[in-house]
Nucleic acid binder design. Structure first.
Length: 502
RNA sequence: GGCGCAUUCGUCUAGCGGCCAAGGACAUCGCCCUCUCAAGGCGGAGAUCACGGGUUCGAAUCCCGUAUGCGCCA
């Protein structure tokens, strides 16, 4: 590899950080880190119409959340000054595009066009009707003299600048690392607009000018950009610049194989964060969307990814975003976390407002972190996302839920022996010297034999009595965490309820 | 409509001419473990490698065509 790899992630601040874009960022970032190169963030904000307030902030936050740091790019949301090739906001580099356009104008590789949208529509319609491929007919290049064009510009007439595609060339080929050589006929490409009438460049121009100025060595972007690449190659040729290496990565699709979009579910990286996914898991999962190392390894730390990521292993076909597999992987990562680490990640999810999935609002915040530390082992292997925690641990913070006393009677048990069991357990627990799960369990065991019941019948009854639920973490650890008072009162009300019912 | 890319189990993929009558993982099913729920272990089912032609002693792997899907432009 060349000594200094320089790659860039070039988001438009027009919306949420789409996982497709974040995956592109990840591949670029991994490539840079693998080769010891630079990762540059450049903000492509020339489309003022589509600019969305706060979008850039979310995009940068996503990168940071997933541990992708950049060597050059924005310092904050508006300060594009980190690095020697700035500014890194395209809206602050307009003069460079203007100068570049003037160079091509002077060389005759570009020309000024005054055609109105109405005329263009008419032209296209005629072409379509004649079953010919639509494309600009070079009206302003062929029908107008240079002097005419200049005088109309001087008169202040609205105009755009078009790139003159070298139709005389037999072919233009794009060398793509992933797909090999892809060839186009220049005749089939039309003279695209590179400068709009408002003085803003189009994507094509700005992109090439910046990639060249920023000394980008590898352009890695989604496959949807492949069709515009021949135009870019032609631009590089017109400027006399060496193009970067291109690599078009497979797209991320929804379950209907169409480009992943909002109607397929969560598409923003920050949504996954809010839904309780770990950045480690998302990173690992996304890396595997279009890339793989071998036939058996699939769990990769960020460090592993950096070590192994190469373009040779990037696939060609689009990949469906399988949220189920992501969820499985997230569970795996949760189980691998240390208890203190997990506890601190869980805390904000429990402390969210109730309406957003947190504990009931009458539970005091912040939560006691020692208590949470004690509860964490009980959830660790029972949740797949951090957001699942409320469902599992809620019972430790709420009053016992109302339940039908019939729930106390387990399969194969009777009201009578269940009452006896509960009374026996209550008596034992009341006499307990210490409140330790293992000791409490040892007290219950003989009772089970004595009553000739199955362990599950007794345990199940106790579970419902102390939690109000049929499902909970392991019983005696739960009872220990619940505390003596809560356990005893649960047992008492259970006995009372059952007795009253019979 | 034009151009381009892609096509291996439902899904993510391994495979770069013989090791493949195709391997792993998710999901699914069954069994084991077990106080519930999980987690974990074991096992099953699941792909005529889109289809049709070539090339070759030999093709999932190379070439051509067709189909389908997707993308871009309009």
């Amino acid at each position: 590899m060349p000594d200094t790899v320089r790659v860039r992630f070039a988001p438009s601040p027009t919306g949420e950080p789409h996982v497709g874009n974040i995956r592109t960022a990840l591949f670029n970032w991994l490539f840079a880190r693998h080769h010891g190169g630079s990762f540059i963030v450049r903000v492509e904000d020339t489309d003022q119409e589509r600019k969305v307030e706060g979008a850039l902030k979310s995009i940068l936050a996503s990168l940071k959340w997933m541990g992708m740091d950049w060597d050059e790019g924005p310092e904050g949301d508006t300060d594009g000054s980190r690095g020697p090739h700035g500014p890194y906001f395209q809206s602050q580099r307009l003069h460079m595009y203007k100068e570049a356009a003037d160079v091509l104008l002077a060389k005759g590789d570009a020309y000024i066009c005054f055609c109105t949208p109405e005329r263009l529509d008419q032209m296209r319609k005629a072409q379509t009707d004649a079953k010919r491929p639509p494309g600009y007919d070079r009206h302003c290049l062929l029908e107008l003299t240079a002097e005419e064009r200049q005088s109309r510009v001087d008169a202040g007439e609205e105009h755009v600048i078009r790139f003159r595609i070298p139709w005389e060339l037999p072919e233009v080929v794009v060398h793509d690392v992933i797909r090999g050589d892809v060839t186009w006929e220049p005749k089939l490409l039309d003279d695209f607009v590179m400068m709009k009438s408002d003085g803003f460049p189009t994507y094509h121009l700005a992109n090439i000018v910046d990639d060249h100025a920023m000394e980008i060595t590898h352009v890695m972007r989604a496959e949807e950009w492949l069709p515009s690449t021949p135009r870019h190659v032609l631009l590089y040729q017109a400027f006399g610049w060496t193009p970067p290496v291109f690599a078009h990565m497979p797209m991320i699709l929804g379950d209907d194989r169409a480009k992943l979009s909002k109607r397929h579910g969560a598409t923003s990286a920050l949504e996954y964060k809010a839904n309780g996914y770990l950045p480690e898991a998302l990173t690992n999962f996304m890396a595997l969307l279009g890339w793989s190392l071998d036939d058996h390894t699939e769990i990769f730390s960020q460090e592993d990814l950096i070590k192994h990521f190469t373009l040779e292993h990037v696939g060609k076909a689009g990949a469906i975003f399988d949220a189920e597999k992501l969820t499985w992987m997230n569970g795996l990562y949760i189980r691998a976390l240390s208890i203190p680490d997990l506890a601190s990640r869980l805390q904000p999810f429990l402390e969210r407002p109730q309406a957003e999935g947190g504990l009931p609002d009458d539970v005091a915040r912040p939560l006691d972190s020692d208590f949470l530390l004690q509860l964490t082992p009980l959830v660790q292997e029972r949740i797949k996302t951090l957001a699942d925690v409320t469902g599992v641990l809620g019972l430790f913070f709420e009053d016992i839920a109302d339940y039908d006393s019939a729930m106390l009677i387990q399969k194969g048990a009777t009201a009578d022996n269940t009452i006896s069991a509960l009374k026996g357990v209550l008596k034992q627990f009341e006499s307990a010297k210490t409140w330790d799960g293992a000791e409490l369990e040892a007290m219950v065991k003989p009772l089970v034999d004595e009553l000739e019941m199955k362990p599950g019948q007794v345990f199940g009854a106790i579970r419902v009595a102390v939690t109000g639920r049929a499902v909970s973490p392991p019983l005696f650890e739960t009872i220990q965490a619940l505390g003596r008072e809560r356990a005893l009162s649960g047992l008492r009300s259970a006995v009372a309820a059952l007795t009253a019912a019979t």
